[in-house]
């Protein structure tokens, strides 16, 4: 890995500050810095943070900002590392051999590239999003070490190597559900998306609701941060929920200042009965 990245140091230096956030995505200084370090060193960027803090959105906006295509790989609990590279459809081949449709000798016909395989075989640079890597088996990240390092993989059935022409920008998100292996972490640039403070949150909301009135925004944020500060809450509302909530408020034309007794559309903010009960109890007290 070192030989590759060290060699690239002699290249013409690209502008470092490639990602500044976009019109629809406000990033904190620290996040921007981490993204730019990852792009400059062409190492995978590992993002963690509470659900709803915009980890997945970042990849989309990064692709937009860099003018590259985005390839998504949404990891599920049953996903195997090799599925991301390619799948050899044995059952189809068996079927064809038995029932005689098409040329069974051509194995390449039964090889289907997965998202990561696509990203590596693309003829131009792309952004690869590996979403929620912690959903899969504990060993999953370890199985991708070589592929992420060398940006190449081998298709056993064809005896062929696929090598990336240009190293894709890799963004990996994780919800902190599982420990990721050290060997994997060592290769990544890490950033924890901290929950935005009020000033940053105001900017974020304005991006999504440009026409919002100051007073309404103030009241909404007041209620929102009040809810988040409630002790013993099981799932605290996040940025995306705030934005949905404001959207609901606007559509229904509810004025927060005039509503008495409880928060309207609480269901967009709180997602468990325990939390709703807790808030109701506190409101009474």
């Amino acid at each position: 890995m070192f030989s590759g990245t060290l060699a690239s140091m002699s290249d013409e230096p690209e502008s470092f500050d490639q990602f500044r956030g976009t019109d629809t995505y406000i990033a904190s200084d620290e996040l921007r810095h981490a993204v730019n370090v990852a792009v400059a060193l062409s190492r995978p960027l590992l993002l963690r943070g509470e659900p709803g803090t915009g980890k997945t959105l970042l990849a989309e906006n990064l692709a937009g900002a860099l003018g590259l295509d985005l390839v998504r790989w949404h990891v599920k609990s049953t996903t195997k590392a090799r599925d991301g590279l390619y799948v050899y459809d044995t059952v189809a081949r068996l079927h064809d051999s038995r029932f005689g449709d098409g040329d069974v000798k051509d194995i390449a016909k039964y090889i289907k590239l997965g998202p990561m395989g696509e990203a590596l075989s693309a003829d131009h640079k792309v952004v690869l999003l590996i979403d929620e890597i912690d959903k899969a088996d504990i060993e999953f990240p370890n199985d991708l070490l070589l592929e992420l390092d060398a940006m190449r993989f081998h298709i056993d059935e064809l005896g062929k190597d696929v090598v990336a022409r240009e190293r894709p920008v890799v963004v990996i998100t994780s919800n902190n559900e599982k420990e990721l292996p050290d060997a994997f972490l060592r290769r990544c640039v890490f950033h924890y998306i901290d929950f935005p403070d009020r000033a940053l949150m105001e900017r974020i909301v304005r991006v999504h609701h440009p026409d919002i009135v100051d007073r309404v925004l103030d009241q909404a944020l007041e209620v929102f941060y009040g809810l988040r500060a409630t002790p013993r809450m099981r799932k605290r509302p996040s940025t995306s929920e705030l934005i949905d909530w404001i959207c609901a408020l606007k559509k229904a034309g509810v004025d927060l200042g005039r509503v008495g007794g409880g928060i309207p559309f609480l269901g967009t903010l709180l997602k468990t009965e325990q939390d709703v009960e807790l808030v109701a109890k506190r409101a009474k007290a």
């Binding site: 470092f16 981490a34 400059a40 640039v189 890490f190 950033h191």
Partner: peptide
């Protein structure tokens, strides 16, 4: 990797920049 980043000037020659770069590269868990 951190040395490489610094050779590329990713830390903006400032303590703030160094703090961020170093944390992003060396720390992998909140």
């Amino acid at each position: 990797a951190l040395m490489e980043a610094m050779a590329k000037g990713l830390h903006d020659s400032s303590l703030d920049g160094f703090y961020r770069t170093c944390r992003a590269l060396c720390v992998k868990d909140v």
